[in-house]
Design a protein around this nucleic acid. Structure first.
Length: 340
DNA sequence: ATGGTCGGTGGCCGA
């Protein structure tokens, strides 16, 4: 995306006219949209000097009636001013139905980065305008009816990777990766798997193998890596209602646990467990059995972080509040805080 | 409780 190329100039600070002539004829909608997003989100400083006689620049706060002028000096606010980055993951089970709940949740929680799964919309139907109006950039990778992943961010998104680097499973939109600040995030919706005797379970295992390859071959253990999303695996006995009943079943199968062990061995940590060690703390509850009312569910939505990042993470919680509101998702958001 | 409830689609599927 073209706007990433102007980030360095914007960090140093530049006149709108200079930026425009530097970029040349490619200075079009994308750049302008990006600048206004940053300004609206209070991440862009706009200094205006009126005429030649009065040389004291005035800081212009965004409003819907304001425009950027050629003589405005603009600068992205320094990263040092941000003390922490709040990152969330949430399987929303249709972004169209969930949008009102998502908007009220964004206003309440003010996360910096939100990774969504099961958006269930094609890209042309993604509610980009509504999210931009409340200060979020979005990148999305969707399809009709099923799957679909997206990342919302208050901070500029430096790079986007749609799907697997290898091209695996291109027809299912279950993975989107982004680079924001110094953090590489892989947002994934792992296949559910149905039952262990189903071909869908074989697909799940194949998907996990490819996901592992994606992480291990793209990054080194020293990189700031976050693998998060609807992982569709309950890691241990504490994460299901009955370990005995779940033994060898889908979402609790030894082959799925082997995948999580490999993540651990490579150097990733399920950060939720750094802060909460009790059992029966779930992130998903079955609609059909009215699981939420009985607190019968599974903890299948996780945030896995490489060592350096996990050390910067000072909290992680499952936000069950909005699960009690009208039209909830069957998943609750998982939110963590990463110090800068 | 081997059902139940959601969401999306198009005349049943996936979770």
């Amino acid at each position: 995306m073209e706007q990433f190329e102007i980030l360095e100039d914007l960090k140093k600070g530049i006149l709108v006219s200079e930026l425009s002539s530097q970029v040349g004829k490619d200075f079009h909608q994308n750049h302008v949209k990006f600048l206004y997003d940053e300004w609206r989100g209070n991440r862009l400083r706009v200094e205006r000097t009126w005429g030649d006689t009065v040389n004291i620049p005035i800081s212009i706060v965004y409003s819907s009636s304001e425009c950027l002028l050629p003589d405005d000096f603009i600068q992205l606010k320094a990263v040092e001013n941000i003390q922490a980055i709040k990152i969330a993951t949430w399987n929303v089970n249709s972004i169209r139905v969930r949008l009102p709940l998502i908007l009220s949740w964004l206003a309440e929680q003010q996360p910096d980065i939100v990774c969504l799964q099961e958006t269930k919309v094609e890209d042309f139907q993604f509610p980009e305008q509504e999210l931009r109006a409340v200060g979020y950039h979005s990148v999305y990778h969707g399809q009709k009816s099923y799957n679909g992943v997206a990342v919302l961010s208050k901070l500029p998104i430096k790079k986007v990777q749609y799907g697997f680097f290898s091209g695996f499973d291109a027809e299912n939109k279950r993975l989107i990766s982004v680079e924001i600040e110094d953090i590489n995030i892989l947002n994934v919706y792992v296949p559910q798997g149905q039952t262990t005797d189903s071909p869908k379970f074989q697909y799940k295992l194949e998907f996990l193998e490819n996901l592992q390859k994606e992480v291990f071959s793209t990054f080194s253990t020293n990189d700031n890596v976050v693998l998060l999303g609807d992982i569709n695996i309950a890691p241990d006995d504490r994460d299901v209602v009955s370990p005995e009943e779940m033994k060898d079943r889908v979402s609790f199968h030894p082959q799925e646990h082997a995948f999580l062990d490999q993540l651990k061995n490579w150097g990733l940590a399920d950060v939720y467990r750094n802060f909460h060690t009790e059992d029966k703390l779930y992130s998903w509850w079955d609609f059909r059995t009215r699981g939420f009312e009985k607190n019968e569910g599974m903890r299948i939505d996780h945030i896995w972080m490489s060592k350096a990042l996990a050390n910067r993470c000072d909290s992680c919680m499952i936000d069950t509040n909005n699960r009690s509101q009208s039209k909830p998702s069957d998943h609750a958001p998982v939110i963590c805080n990463v110090k800068v």
